[in-house]
């Protein structure tokens, strides 16, 4: 038997991130399968995983899970390096940035619902900005901003509630 020249030592955290990223990819596929009246309006179910990881394992793990989800999800949907990929990448980067700040808010007052809503708003803001700068260089895209913001608020609240509910339950012993 030949010895493998490269030894990859996988830590417990690597496994955890991979597991979480797989769950996030699954949810983003589900997201893509839900029909929507307007491109860009979708529940963003994968963010539930990001927020759970953020709450349990910290920002770094959440960033990993989100990054893997964006890349793997777009590969599975055949969108890798297509405009949709860059839109979701920009959204993800911005919402991770906002989450880094949101995590510092006093926990007594601000919970997962706040994180989720802020992340959703940052996500859509990033996408609109990229769309304005690159895809549709016209201020007309901002006419859609109120619809997107309202959607972000709505789904952000629901996802946040789901996250808060899941965090409330005792962690499953796996």
């Amino acid at each position: 038997m030949t010895r493998s020249p490269i030894e990859l030592t996988l830590t417990e955290e690597d496994h955890r991130i991979a597991r979480m990223a797989a769950a996030a990819v699954g949810l983003s596929l589900l997201d893509a399968a839900i029909p929507t009246p307007l491109p860009g309006v979708k529940p963003g179910l994968a963010n539930i995983v990001t927020l759970l990881v953020l709450a349990r394992y910290g920002w770094n793990a959440a960033a990993w899970v989100t990054g893997l989800r964006v890349v793997a999800g777009s590969l599975l949907l055949g969108q890798f390096l297509a405009p949709g990929f860059f839109l979701s990448l920009t959204g993800a980067v911005l919402s991770l940035g906002v989450l880094a700040l949101a995590k510092k808010l006093p926990a007594r007052a601000f919970g997962p619902v706040s994180w989720s809503v802020l992340a959703a708003l940052a996500h859509i803001a990033g996408q609109l900005l990229l769309a304005r700068l690159w895809l549709i260089p016209h201020d007309g895209v901002f006419l859609l901003a109120p619809i997107f913001a309202a959607t972000a608020l709505f789904f952000g609240t629901i996802n946040g509630l789901i996250v808060a509910r899941l965090l409330d339950e005792p962690p499953a012993s796996s």
Binding site: R108, A109, V113, L153, T157, L161, R165
Partner: peptide, 16 residues
């Protein structure tokens, strides 16, 4: 479900 929403969350939702 309402129990899960903290005071700051309400504020944020209201402002948003």
């Amino acid at each position: 479900w309402l129990r899960l929403v903290r005071p700051g969350d309400w504020l944020l939702l209201l402002v948003g």
